[in-house]
Simulated assay, not measured.
Amino acid sequence: MVVKFRKHALKFLQKTTGDDVSQIQSQLRQLIISIEEKSIIPFTELDIKKLKYRSNPPLQSYNLDRTSPII
């Protein structure tokens, strides 16, 4: 699965440490598994909010699966 991150998100992820990193990794893994197996986005389980589309700079893509390291 390819996940795209904005530059600001990548900078945020690079600045985070310790417990925050592990929590973000587990939530991303849970999101990937849910989308791959059930083909749904778990909005309520992961407290995901629907975002409005706006024109932003290009995204950076990363191939992620259940075994790949995240961040």
Rank of each mutant, 00 (worst) to 15 (best):
M1L: 05
M1C: 04
M1D: 03
M1Y: 04
M1E: 03
V2I: 14
V3C: 01
K4L: 09
K7A: 10
K7H: 07
K7L: 08
H8Y: 09
A9W: 01
L10N: 01
L10R: 06
L10S: 02
K11T: 11
F12E: 12
F12T: 09
F12L: 11
L13C: 02
L13Q: 00
L13I: 03
Q14E: 15
Q14A: 15
Q14F: 05
Q14H: 10
K15M: 06
T16P: 00
T17R: 15
G18I: 01
G18W: 02
D19R: 14
D19I: 10
D19C: 07
D19N: 10
V21H: 00
V21L: 06
S22A: 09
S22T: 12
Q23P: 01
Q23V: 07
I24K: 00
S26C: 04
S26P: 01
Q27P: 01
Q27L: 03
Q27R: 11
L28S: 00
R29S: 02
R29F: 01
Q30L: 12
Q30V: 08
L31N: 02
I33W: 06
I33S: 13
I33L: 12
S34H: 09
I35R: 08
I35D: 03
I35H: 04
E36C: 08
E37L: 12
E37R: 10
E37K: 13
E37H: 09
K38F: 10
K38L: 14
K38W: 07
S39Y: 12
S39F: 09
I40P: 06
I40K: 14
I41R: 05
P42F: 04
P42E: 02
P42Y: 03
F43V: 13
T44R: 14
T44L: 14
E45L: 13
E45M: 10
D47R: 11
D47T: 08
D47G: 10
I48Y: 05
I48G: 04
I48D: 05
K50T: 11
K50Q: 13
L51A: 15
L51E: 13
K52I: 12
K52L: 11
Y53R: 13
Y53F: 15
R54W: 08
N56P: 04
N56L: 12
P58I: 02
P58S: 06
P58Q: 07
Q60C: 08
Y62P: 01
L64N: 01
D65G: 05
D65H: 06
T67C: 09
T67V: 10
T67W: 08
S68R: 04
P69Y: 05
P69S: 05
I70G: 00
I70A: 00
I71L: 13
